[in-house]
Amino acid sequence: MSRTFRLTPPLNDADTTALKIGDRVLITGTIYTGRDAAHKRIVEALQNGQEPPFPLKGAVIYYVGSSPAPPGRVIGAAGPTTSYRMDSYTPTMLQLGLKAMIGKGKRGEEVKAAMAQHKAVYLGAIGGAGALMARAIVEAEVIAYPELGPEAVRRLVVKDMPLVCVNDVHGGDLYLEGRRDYQR
């Protein structure tokens, strides 16, 4: 049976090294959002010697562009977007201490190698379950690039955000392992 880990960012090497593919992870605490346009801005800022919009050391980033918050809500639907589009920016961010990425879909070989090198993990959220994922988000605030609209960087406070470890620091890949028993 799968194990469940409760983690609170910022994460350290011990947190990520303990995880193996298939482990359930419940995150409580502060995470940051970023998808295509925000990644481009963050990496450009870093290349220009500027500070990133949030501290990368130990950080957890969620690849999400939420829908607008209806009245009385902190956020709209907030499920993961497809992660490979962030691959070209990811090694730079891992090098600066990013410890976990939350998304859906396959990562490239270069990203997997960088995850192993920098002891970072890739956690899967259920794609297309935006209304369900929103329930784990208790606070949301735009902290950078507001002009990007749904792609702006947000600081989220989450409670028991349900995830599964898809890529661990040991080179495991749940997308490759998981289907083995069901392939005919």
């Binding site: 562009g65 639907a77 599964v164 998981g178």
Partner: peptide, 30 residues
């Protein structure tokens, strides 16, 4: 047949129920 697969499908049905009950989009990608 997969226990994880069953769980995901259960969550997706639950997600649709939440979306309908709370007038939230099923998926943030509208």
């Amino acid at each position: 047949e997969s226990p994880v697969g069953k769980e995901i499908l259960t969550r997706l049905l639950e997600n649709a129920d939440i979306a309908a009950a709370e007038s939230m989009p099923i998926c943030q990608d509208c």
